[in-house]
Design a protein around this nucleic acid. Structure first.
Lengths: 209, 209
DNA sequence: CGCTATTTTAAACGGGTGTTTAAAATAGTC
DNA sequence: GACTATTTTAAACACCCGTTTAAAATAGCG
């Protein structure tokens, strides 16, 4: 395997586990069995490595997401919010074929990115992959047309928060569910539980003021 | 003002802004106009300073939260989930009298704590202030008795995620709302919008499997 | 005042960070 | 096989970190 890919593979596991700021290049390169200087040689800087790690997932995910969402929009029956959010499931779970534990790792990375490095990742995603966002809001608009644009902005952000936060600590939660409730869950099980929650949240009655 | 308080005041603003790992003791002490060694002299270590910053808020908040929640439980009419979550509003907003921008800062700190330092803050809060959690789950149990303990565990965690994540980036969101929708919001406005969302999320129909 | 206890200070310690350098090794090509 | 271009390597760089030290300053008190 190429040095570049060895670095990417080591980086995304470590980044997901300990955050971007919490992972040093020395950890990454020793895990990847490559020289320390290789990161700066192949990627230029740590920041560029972070972008590369995220891009690897997003380039795989974003076309699938876009087509799944436009499929929902073009359905004969008016889609429910549950339909809209469910459109994310298959593309996300497909990441497991792209990379071992891909779904879980990617969602953890997303969570890390929002917390670390004051919003630079949010900027990166919204500017590099804007179609996912516009298609998503379009789909929600169809499913719940009474929702004003501003109200939708807030509720979609709440949703983003729920998903990202949940997934960034999903391993710990799966452990708790295993120990306290004897319920063996995986990442698909967590997604299955969070979808009704966010769908109901977005569908909440509109506050009057 | 005492050195100890100067440090606490500087620390909680900086911690909220840049996270615990992202803020150095040198930033804190220079902002507070005290000597670098003062932190270790007065608090022992950076970790203890973090605990002290959180305790200052929690000691103010937790009694108010406990009584507000037990008030909801003892009401004549069975409370709705909206009532339960609304019980948080007044105590949280009271933090603004305790400290300038207290509500916003505290919620940001909470968000930081969940992301940074892999869960040590979660442990600290649940062991040091367990009553808040037990009272809260008790109230939810009354408002929505059909919800199984496990389902509740998940939904409450989703809720925690929504709140914490939203508030940790609330400043940026308020800016966007101001620019894109010409809607001048403050932290109370954000809370007002998130309550219906989380209440509806927790109240979502129970999935059958 | 004089003495003790507390607090503040400047400096250093040991270690970790991302990045750069220049030489060594390897690969690719005529 | 010789020569160039790419990649890998070990070492160093400059800087930041949390913590410790021991001397200096201050406060409290009989």
């Amino acid at each position: 395997m190429s040095t570049k890919n060895k670095i990417l593979d080591a980086a995304d596991v470590l980044f997901a586990d300990k955050g971007f700021n919490g992972t040093s290049l020395r950890e990454i390169t020793s895990q990847a069995n490559v020289n320390l200087a290789a990161v700066n040689y192949h990627f230029g800087s740590k920041k560029e490595l972070i972008k590369a790690v995220m891009s690897r997932y997003m380039d795989e995910l974003s076309p699938q997401l876009e087509s799944a969402l436009s499929l929902v929009c073009e359905a004969e029956l008016k889609p429910s919010l549950h339909d809209v959010f469910s459109a994310f499931i298959a593309p996300l779970l497909n990441l497991n074929e792209f990379k071992y534990n891909g779904t879980s790792t990617f969602l953890q990375l997303l969570g890390r990115g929002y917390a670390d490095s004051q919003g630079f990742l949010r900027w990166f995603l919204t500017t590099q992959y804007p179609n996912v966002f516009t298609n998503f809001t379009k789909a929600v608009k169809i499913a719940y047309p009474e929702l004003s644009t501003e109200e939708m902005f807030w509720r979609l952000h709440f949703t983003m928060g729920t998903i990202v936060f949940t997934m960034s600590s999903s391993e710990a939660l799966i452990d708790i569910a295993q120990n306290d409730f004897n319920n063996k869950l995986d990442i698909a099980g967590v997604i299955e539980r969070v979808i009704p929650y966010v769908a109901a949240g977005v569908a909440a009655p509109i506050t009057n003021n």
